[in-house]
Write a protein that binds this DNA or RNA. Structure first.
Length: 683
RNA sequence: GGCGAGGUAGCUCAGUUGGUUAGAGCGCCGGAUUCAUAACCCGGAGGUCGAGAGUUCAAAUCUCUCUCUCGCUACCA
């Protein structure tokens, strides 16, 4: 087998919170399995990961907790790094983007591309806090989420419903620093004109060719990855801002970049490169071998939320630079749900890795097995504690653990723990020995195709084969009549155990090591007759009902309030004082909704006709997610009738229905407490 | 609304370029067995393959319409 060189990356976790099982199942565990397999085959692998430590979410949190951003990321980096180490994800290096070497690398990358004319500069209006005299990063703007109505949504994302937002989307934006209403002010940023790269990207994704030369086999890429990238390209790629007005991050290293830093899309993926540099320096290697030698395979393991960054944006950056390899595959997984709901950091609906490790000490492989069994490789999948228990008890304990145990126990019982001779080999026995090789081959093929779930299932069939072989040959009966045959049987059963140790190494590294210890061999050593094996312990313990119930209870009784943040201001501050005249400019009347129907081109809008007493008019209102059209017909509501008409999604809306909103973002009509004639004034 | 990915046995999932009675593991039921963590082994039941229509000698597999889930994206008080 010829040895190749691989650079394997796993998505950089954001250093703003701990890891949960969704992260593990989606990216880190498949990557780890792949890497352990490659290493076992003698390949040269750099397995790269690290904390993504920049961004406004961290500065904001630092400000709130009265710490420096560095303190925040130091804390989280330590927690995450430890959880990975305890769980047994075997990174070559777990690095961090706040390091000096990363800042230098990212800045140099920017400078290089800037000199090549790869960027454009654009001036736009951004929110600016006049009191603090600074531009507000998306995260620094808090307002009402337009999707779910949550009152503490950030300018880039709503932590409640998870929607991706832009600051202009927010209703009633306020500055997270001062609480003031921000103003729009001009600022200039660097953009990556992705539209320039559509042509070669399309060819690269469709045919797997780069500059006309074969690069990778697109058939091995997952459908969801190709599909989403094509979708983006078909809709036309847009120039994308790669700098931000913020003081925490990699400083923009060119003229005019004062007070600006590189944005995450640009900064974080380069973290893979800087981490590799650090690792190479520590281990006396040449990092360029892992990024610039075209023989080296580059594979990014990520979740589906990261697809376009790794399969479009980062490749553009790498190709612009000109010396770097592009990924030969980007195996993105879908999402893992938990007990019927989406995993949510902010709602604390998650199984945290560090908590699992504390609650289930030395059960890393049990979690690895279950998460691989249900890995969301082709669609979202679901983790339940009952399923965890069933898989551990019925598969790991009953099939794998039990086979190893019965084989080793029988060997001790009949042959004092010495591997017996392989005597005459029957056809069946020969068949079984061949199966060990066949199954091993199958598992390897599946791993190289990134089908880890299938690969693990196939590995399990070797243990099934072992159990069946023992049941078929019944050595416990035969021992009374034909000891020579029993020797052969147990020899073969022990060979299966040896095969299991090898085959499960990438999936269950601790178990494989333990099994090798029972057999008293190293993992690449063959068992020979006469070899003394050790007394076994149990490979796996059953998971009792109480343990599972405890976990389920823990999930359901835990505080589901946001874990990481509470909005700074639940109740918005009073607006500036106005005069009575200002108030009387608004003409608010009581009207009755006559008809209501869904807006044909929008999910959240209803098209209403309202009798205002003055007239009957059309009003478009964004309440479709709160009310069904049928239920509101005939309802009396308050209407701002003298608001300038405006076209909303193609339909002219004349006036506005007044809505009251609670802190959860639920809307309610402001209706008169008893029936009032239409046209009645509100004052 | 647009785009992408999905909807196959109770659960987690396979089903290659359309081809005989639709598969696997686990669960369930029955049998056999006792070396083993009441485990293993054998057998069985369970699916109008999201719905409908079409193409075809033949469709889970191709086309169209609809529907539900997830993601991206648009609109919005």
């Amino acid at each position: 087998m010829n040895s190749k060189r691989y650079t394997i990356t796993a998505a950089l976790p954001y250093a703003n919170g701990p890891l949960h099982i969704g992260h593990i199942a989606g990216a880190y565990l498949p990557a780890d399995i792949y890497v352990r397999y490659l290493k076992s085959k003698g390949h040269d692998v750099a397995f790269i990961c690290g904390s993504d430590e920049h961004g406004a979410a961290i500065t904001l949190r630092a400000k709130k907790e009265g710490k420096t951003p560095q303190q925040i990321v130091d804390e989280n980096h330590t927690i995450i790094e430890k959880a990975f180490a305890d769980f047994g994800i075997d990174f070559s290096i777990y690095h961090r983007t706040s390091s000096k070497i990363h800042h230098e690398t990212a800045a140099a990358f920017f400078t290089d591309l800037h000199q090549k004319g790869a960027f454009t500069q654009e001036t736009s209006n951004q929110f600016y806090d006049e009191e603090q005299q600074q531009f507000l990063a998306d995260r620094y703007i808090i307002g009402t989420c337009p999707k779910c109505g949550f009152d503490g949504a950030y300018g880039d994302q709503c932590e409640k419903c998870g929607s991706t937002l832009s600051p202009a989307d927010l209703i009633n934006p306020t500055s997270a620093i001062s609480g003031n209403t921000p103003v729009l002010k001009e600022t200039t940023h660097w953009y990556l004109p992705m539209n320039r790269h559509e042509k070669w990207l399309t060819e690269w994704l469709d045919k797997g060719t780069l500059d006309g030369k074969p690069h990778h086999n697109p058939k091995q890429w997952k459908k969801n990855v190709i599909g989403q990238c094509k979708s983006w390209i078909d809709n036309g790629l847009q120039p994308r801002s790669i700098t931000r007005d913020l003081d925490w991050g990699v400083k923009v290293p060119v003229k005019g970049g004062e007070g600006k830093v590189l944005y995450v899309w640009f900064d974080a993926p380069i973290g893979y490169i800087s981490a590799t540099k650090q690792w190479a320096a520590n281990n006396n290697k040449n990092w360029e071998d892992y990024w610039k030698n075209p023989e080296t395979e580059l594979v990014h393991f990520i979740g589906k939320d990261n697809i376009v960054f790794h399969a479009i944006i980062f490749p553009i950056i790498l190709k612009l630079h000109g010396e770097f390899n592009l990924p030969t595959n980007v195996p993105a997984n879908e999402f893992l749900n938990l007990e019927g709901n989406k995993i949510s950091t902010s709602r604390n609906w998650a199984v945290w890795l560090h908590e699992y490790l504390a609650d289930f000490p030395n059960k890393q492989d049990e979690l690895r097995y279950v998460l691989t069994s249900i890995a969301p490789e082709t669609k979202d999948s679901e983790f339940t504690w009952k399923d965890y228990q069933a898989r551990v008890n019925n598969e790991l304990v009953a099939i794998l653990g039990n086979f190893v145990n019965r084989t080793v126990v029988l060997t001790h019982k009949y042959f004092e723990g010495k591997v017996p001779e392989l005597n005459s080999i029957s056809v069946e026995a020969q068949n079984v020995l061949e199966q060990i090789g066949t199954i091993t081959k199958n598992v390897e093929n599946l791993i190289t195709q990134f089908k880890f779930r299938d690969a693990q299932t196939e590995a399990m069939t070797l243990a099934r084969l072992g159990n069946k072989y023992l049941a078929d040959t019944e050595p416990w009966k035969l021992i009374k009549t034909d000891e020579e045959k029993v020797k052969t049987i147990l020899h073969i059963a022990l060979q299966i155990c040896g095969g299991l140790a090898t085959i499960f190494t990438p999936f269950l590294p601790k178990t494989a090591t333990k099994l090798a210890q029972f057999l008293n061999i190293s993992l690449d050593e063959k068992l020979v007759a006469g070899h003394q094996i050790n007394q076994p312990e149990l490979l796996f313990q059953k998971i009792e009902d109480e343990e599972i119930e405890t976990q389920i209870k823990k999930l359901s009784t835990r505080e589901h309030a946001p874990l990481l943040q509470t909005p700074l201001k639940k109740i918005k501050p009073m607006k500036e004082e106005i005069t009575f005249d200002d108030f009387t400019k608004m003409d608010i009347r009581i009207g009755t909704i006559l008809t209501a129907e869904k807006h044909p081109d929008a999910d959240k809008l209803l098209k209403l006709t309202v009798d205002t007493g003055i007239d009957t008019r059309t009003i478009v209102s964004g309440i479709a997610q709160h009310y069904n059209p049928e239920e509101i017909i005939g309802k009396q509501v308050s209407v701002l009738v003298n608001l300038a008409p405006r076209k909303i999604r193609g339909i002219e809306s004349k006036g506005m229905i007044l809505m009251a909103e609670n802190t959860e973002g639920n809307l309610a009509f402001v209706s008169p407490e008893k029936v009032i004639d239409n046209g009645g004034e509100v004052r």
